[in-house]
């Protein structure tokens, strides 16, 4: 299972990549594989505020529906509108083209609540 080295992770299998105070978020390769072919993505509203570990998006596959939790708090500044017409991008490229939203972080300290790639890798091994 692919894990990107310099990203941070949640136990709910979201990833986040932080540059300055802009956090790009998405779901991990493990998550997309567990969901199967994704058929629909409901993205957060641009301009809306999100709280760390609160629901901010949802993803559906044929026989599953999952809430996605915001890995960090802040204001949504951009969403990946391509997913609306082609949700399968997440299956093909969970860590890059399948990103969900960009969040302007309100509290950079929150990054300490997330796992490093190494920790996430171990977490994946622990859940088998």
């Amino acid at each position: 299972m692919e894990v990107v080295d310099h990203y941070l992770y949640t136990k709910e299998h979201e990833w986040v990549s932080i540059e300055d105070n802009i956090a790009t978020t998405g779901i991990t390769d493990y998550a997309q594989e567990a969901l199967g072919d994704i058929t629909f993505v409901e993205l957060p509203e641009v301009g809306g505020e999100v709280e760390q570990f609160e629901e901010f998006a949802s993803i559906e596959s044929v026989k599953a529906a999952n809430d996605i939790f915001a890995p960090v708090s802040g204001k949504v500044i951009e969403v990946n509108t391509r997913l609306e017409s082609d949700p399968g991008i997440i299956n093909k490229s969970a860590f890059e083209k399948g990103w969900l939203a960009k969040v302007q972080m309100s509290d950079k300290e929150e990054a300490s609540n997330l796992m490093t790639a190494e920790e996430y890798q171990k977490f994946l091994e622990s859940i088998g």
């Binding site: 058929t39 629909f40 559906e60 596959s61 044929v62 026989k63 599953a64 529906a65 809430d67």
Partner: peptide, 12 residues
């Protein structure tokens, strides 16, 4: 569009 329905979404 079964992912809207109770047997998958349950309380949601």
């Amino acid at each position: 569009l079964q992912a809207r329905e109770q047997h998958i979404r349950r309380e949601k």
